[in-house]
Amino acid sequence: MEVTVTVNGTAYERDVEPRKLLIHFLRDDLDLTGSHIGCDTGNCGACSIIVDGVLVKSCMLLAVQADGSEIETVEGLADGDRLTELQQAFSDHHALQCGYCTPGMLMSATALLRANASPSDEEIKKALQGNICRCTGYWNIFEAVKSVAR
């Protein structure tokens, strides 16, 4: 089936099988490998992206379901070498160890801060509950997000 999407401002049109998951479409068809596959069971959140303004796990959507949508992935955050304030905060607070969960953490935190620029500690934790860090480096991730909350 023909699928047309806009990813980080660039339009793409591809012919995809209905059985293809959106994460595979991004990584294999569009070569956007920033979004990771951690568990492939909907638990870990490493594949989190924003579709039409809504944070989702891209391993639980079919690519054909995204037809016509506007997608944001981790590649769309920085402007060249200029990191977003949140990305810089992750760096400053050592909020990544192995880095595997980071793209999903960044997208979840980005979605949170867009909806709520002044989240409480509880709201930050709840916003990140769908993202698992196998290094268990949660505290610095929390601190990084908190540091950019107004």
């Binding site: 909907g42 959140g45 989190s48 809504v54 944070l55 989702v56 796990k57 639980m60 959507l61 979840s108 979605a111 949170l112 709840k126 916003a127 509950q129 769908g130 993202n131």
Partner: peptide, 9 residues
Amino acid sequence: IADVQVRNR
């Protein structure tokens, strides 16, 4: 129920 992403879909 579950987490933000799951509640969104």
